[in-house]
């Protein structure tokens, strides 16, 4: 159990390299020297990977929970400091909360304060007051703002499938309110319909299954685009995009499935990564492998474990939060 002396020396060298590179910044000579050290002995590489994995584990933890827990045995003074820190955090939050809707530009605030949220790996259907059904995919934040003029859904992040209901106010003889989904890049107006909206980092993708929608880019509202059933489009704030054939598999997640055909492993890892917390990395050496299959999203660990049966890959768990797909013979 106790590491041998030379193992301890290797660990020490790895730790020294680790911090030396951090200080050196991007000095190529230092990086090269470190790479040479790592390559000199497989045990060096193992120790180096451990250093990265340990740092990665820390990075995956919420700091406001991790510090008081891991540093729980500090002396009295420090405990007081921690308490002050906790109070400070709380005070900050109390200030942010009432002004929250003014601070929508800030992504974290947007996600935390949104009315309907799903955690990473969670999927949930909800029914709105007018009978419209919305299914939230993993890591999604949605605000519902129904007014007298319109029914507005603000997609803060993530992905939603919408089955619109006819406006219930029609029964009271009032004019129907349009239903709009708003993303960072613009709005999607429902024209009696079933469609899916996904907020990507720098664009929005819409797939329409029934009825039609109208896309309006936020910075070019006059360049609207009508999408009919069976069509999809990718739009930005200035460009409504072009209609293309809809992807029938975009709604698979509503049944807890991920179905792919001939997908690049790198894209697959990115897609799967949406459904599990932490980092799922795909090494360039295996990025272009192709994968097909139907996968059950409720157990992403099982999906990862099954990959080596289908493809020449190795799944390296540096921690629960840090998984890499790589080649089995490095």
């Amino acid at each position: 159990m106790t590491p041998t002396l030379s193992e301890q020396q290797i660990a020490l060298a790895a730790a020294e390299w680790y911090f030396r590179l951090r200080e050196a910044g991007a000095d190529p000579a230092e990086h090269a020297a470190c790479a040479a050290w790592r390559a000199a002995d497989p045990r060096h590489e193992v120790a180096w990977a451990k250093a990265e994995r340990i740092s990665g584990s820390f990075a995956g933890l919420p700091g406001e929970l991790a510090l008081p827990v891991l540093d729980r045995n500090r002396n009295r003074n420090d405990l007081d400091a921690q308490r002050r820190r906790a109070v400070k955090t709380l005070a900050t939050l109390l200030i942010v909360a009432p002004a929250g809707w003014l601070a929508w530009q800030s992504t974290p605030a947007r996600q935390v304060l949104a009315k309907h949220r799903t955690a990473t790996g969670e999927r949930r259907p909800i029914v709105l007051t007018d009978g419209t059904r919305v299914h939230l995919n993993t890591a999604t934040a949605l605000d519902v703002d129904y007014g007298s003029e319109q029914r507005l859904l603000r997609l803060r992040r993530g992905e939603i499938l919408i089955d619109t209901a006819p406006d219930s106010r029609l029964a009271d003889g009032l004019p129907a309110r349009p239903l709009l989904v708003e993303t960072v890049q613009g709005s999607v107006r429902a024209l009696g319909t079933r469609f899916i909206v996904r907020q990507h980092d720098n664009h929005t993708r819409v797939n329409v299954y029934t009825g039609a929608v109208e896309i309006r880019p936020a910075a070019a509202p006059d360049r609207s685009l009508r999408l009919n059933a069976g069509e999809q489009a990718r739009f930005t704030a200035i460009d409504p995009g072009q209609p293309a054939e809809a992807d029938p598999h975009t709604t698979d997640w509503t049944h807890g499935q991920l179905i792919v055909r001939d997908m690049r492993l790198a894209d697959f890892a990115k897609e799967l990564g949406r459904h599990r917390p932490g980092v799922l990395r795909c090494d360039p050496s295996v990025a272009d492998l192709r994968i097909s299959g139907a996968f059950q999203l409720h157990d992403t660990d099982a999906i990862l474990a099954s990959l080596p049966e289908a493809l020449p890959v190795k799944v390296v768990h540096r921690s629960r939060y840090w998984v890499t797909l790589t080649t089995p013979n490095p």
Binding site: S57, E64, A66, V69, L70, A86, L90, L113, E122, P277
Partner: peptide, 26 residues
């Protein structure tokens, strides 16, 4: 620590377990 964190920031049950496991390993 969880009790000190405002409700909106408390991770889901599944994440709480994952975080606890990582904390335990470290």
């Amino acid at each position: 620590a969880l009790a000190q964190v405002p409700q909106a920031f408390v991770p889901s049950t599944e994440q709480r377990v994952l975080v606890l496991e990582t904390l335990n390993e470290l």
